[in-house]
Simulated assay, not measured.
Amino acid sequence: MLESIKEDIILSNKKSWDDAAPRFFGRTALPIYGPILPTENELNLFDDLSGKKVLEIGCGSGHSLKYMASNGASELWGIDLSDTQIEAARTLLSVVNNTKVNLFQGAMEKNPGIPIEYFDIVYSIYAIGWTVDLGRTLQNLYSYLKPGGKFIFSWEHPIHSRISQNGEQLIINKSYHDEGLQQCEPWDRPAIMNQLRISTYINELIQTGFQIEKIVEDVVIQEEIKSGDPAVWYTHKKASLIPPAFIIKCIKR
Rank of each mutant, 00 (worst) to 15 (best):
K214A: 13
E213A: 06
P230C: 08
I248L: 02
I125L: 01
K110Q: 14
E213G: 07
L55K: 03
D83P: 01
V132D: 05
F119C: 08
P147R: 12
E109V: 10
L241E: 14
I247G: 02
K252Y: 02
A20P: 01
L81S: 01
F246C: 10
N41S: 11
L134W: 05
N173V: 15
L205I: 00
N98A: 14
H177N: 09
L103H: 00
L93V: 03
P190M: 07
Q169E: 15
P243Q: 09
E204C: 07
R253S: 13
Y123K: 04
E42R: 04
R27L: 13
I114Q: 02
L49S: 13
L241I: 14
N102D: 00
W77A: 01
A191H: 12
L170V: 08
S175E: 12
P243D: 08
L93M: 10
W77L: 02
G148P: 02
T200Q: 06
Y126L: 06
G209S: 09
I57G: 01
D80V: 01
S4V: 14
I221D: 08
R27K: 14
H63G: 04
E56P: 05
E223P: 03
S64Q: 05
G34K: 00
D47P: 03
I10F: 05
Y118F: 15
D229I: 10
E156K: 00
A73Y: 05
S161M: 10
N97Y: 06
A231C: 11
E117D: 15
W77Y: 12
L65I: 07
D80Y: 01
N102M: 10
F25L: 11
P112I: 06
N13C: 11
K66I: 00
L103G: 00
A127H: 04
H160N: 07
N102C: 06
T200C: 04
G62Q: 04
G167R: 09
I251Y: 01
E109A: 11
I212C: 11
I152D: 01
L138F: 05
P38R: 04
Y201D: 01
D188S: 10
G180Y: 07
I206K: 15
I159M: 15
M108A: 15
I32N: 13
E42D: 03
L93P: 03
T28M: 11
H63V: 04
F151Y: 04
I9P: 09
Q211D: 12
Q85T: 03
M108P: 01
D178Y: 12
H157F: 02
S124Q: 05
L134P: 01
I251L: 13
K53D: 10
G51P: 06
Y142L: 02
Q207H: 11
T131L: 07
N44Q: 12
G60N: 02
R253D: 11
P186T: 07
A245K: 03
H236Q: 11
